[in-house]
Computed example of a mutant assay.
Amino acid sequence: MTDDVFEVHRARGPFNAAFFSPLGPFIEWNLRRHKRRVYSELPHTVVELGSGVGANLRYLRPGSTLVAVEPNVPMHRRLRAAAARHGVRLDLRERLAERTDLPDDSVDSVISSLVLCTVADPAEVLAEIRRILRPGGTFRFVEHVAARPGTPTRALQRALRRPWAWTFEGCSCERDLAGLLRAAGFARVDIEPFRLHTPFIPFNTQIAGVAHA
């Protein structure tokens, strides 16, 4: 990975694009209640970090604009098709979340789901979000996080951390993202922890919420 370019692995990149297309409805079924809450009443233009194949387009109103910061090129074809199906104008940017190239104080709302686990430096991404949000803007997130220390889920996350990260483009199941969000300098951060019940146990400890600039 260079400063501004995501280097797509010739096997993992296409695999993840193909994997998350059929798996998307299953993940969405598990997360939909929390996404409906935190993604309610989004503005006309939304910035999304790691748009993937477009799982969150359903939460935007038809005619809205999605500024999609998605560096993984194998995702782009499916993302464009999904935007067309949902009637959303797509402004697709092949950039890293750490350097969106958007102006300071220019965005009303940033969203992410299952993205902060994969970025190289989540604290740097949160600083970038704060930079581009206008005062009063919001960062709305649904992310998977490390389980509590001493729990069986935490032990499994630690045991699987290397193969999990290799398969899912550097995804970490051991990050304290709630702590990072609270330390990032937002005016207020509202976080709800919750747990999924899926076969993907390292993925089952989650948070959803809104950070206010």
Rank of each mutant, 00 (worst) to 15 (best):
R134A: 10
P135C: 12
P135S: 11
G136D: 13
G136F: 08
G136Y: 06
G136K: 12
G137V: 05
G137P: 06
G137S: 10
T138I: 00
F139L: 05
F139M: 04
F139G: 03
R140A: 08
R140S: 10
R140H: 03
R140E: 08
F141I: 03
V142Q: 12
E143C: 10
H144W: 07
H144Y: 11
H144T: 13
A146Y: 08
A146H: 05
A146C: 02
A146F: 02
A146T: 03
A147S: 10
A147M: 01
R148K: 11
R148L: 04
P149T: 05
G150H: 01
G150N: 01
G150E: 02
G150L: 00
T151E: 05
T151Q: 02
T151I: 02
P152R: 00
P152W: 01
T153D: 09
T153F: 02
R154W: 06
R154P: 05
A155L: 09
A155G: 03
L156Q: 08
Q157R: 07
R158Q: 15
R158L: 13
R161H: 14
R161L: 05
R162Q: 12
R162D: 15
R162I: 15
P163K: 07
P163Q: 10
P163V: 03
P163E: 11
W164R: 09
A165W: 04
W166V: 10
W166I: 08
W166F: 10
T167E: 03
T167W: 07
F168G: 13
F168I: 10
E169W: 09
E169T: 11
E169H: 06
C171Q: 10
C171E: 15
C171F: 03
S172K: 04
S172C: 02
S172A: 09
S172H: 11
S172Y: 00
C173M: 13
C173A: 09
C173Q: 09
E174P: 02
E174N: 15
R175S: 14
R175F: 03
R175L: 08
R175W: 04
R175K: 07
D176K: 00
D176W: 02
G179E: 12
G179N: 13
G179P: 10
L181N: 08
L181D: 05
L181P: 09
L181A: 06
L181W: 13
A183T: 12
A184T: 11
A184K: 12
A184V: 12
A184G: 06
F186P: 05
F186A: 06
F186G: 03
F186N: 10
R188P: 04
R188S: 15
R188W: 10
R188I: 05
R188N: 13
V189I: 14
V189T: 14
V189E: 14
V189G: 15
V189A: 09
D190G: 00
D190R: 15
D190V: 03
D190Q: 07
P193Q: 13
P193L: 00
P193N: 09
P193A: 03
F194Q: 04
F194Y: 14
F194P: 04
R195A: 05
R195V: 05
R195Y: 02
L196D: 00
H197M: 07
H197R: 14
H197V: 13
T198P: 04
T198N: 11
P199T: 13
P199A: 12
F200N: 05
I201H: 08
I201L: 12
I201D: 12
P202A: 02
P202R: 13
P202Y: 07
F203A: 00
F203Q: 01
N204F: 01
N204E: 15
T205I: 00
T205S: 00
T205D: 08
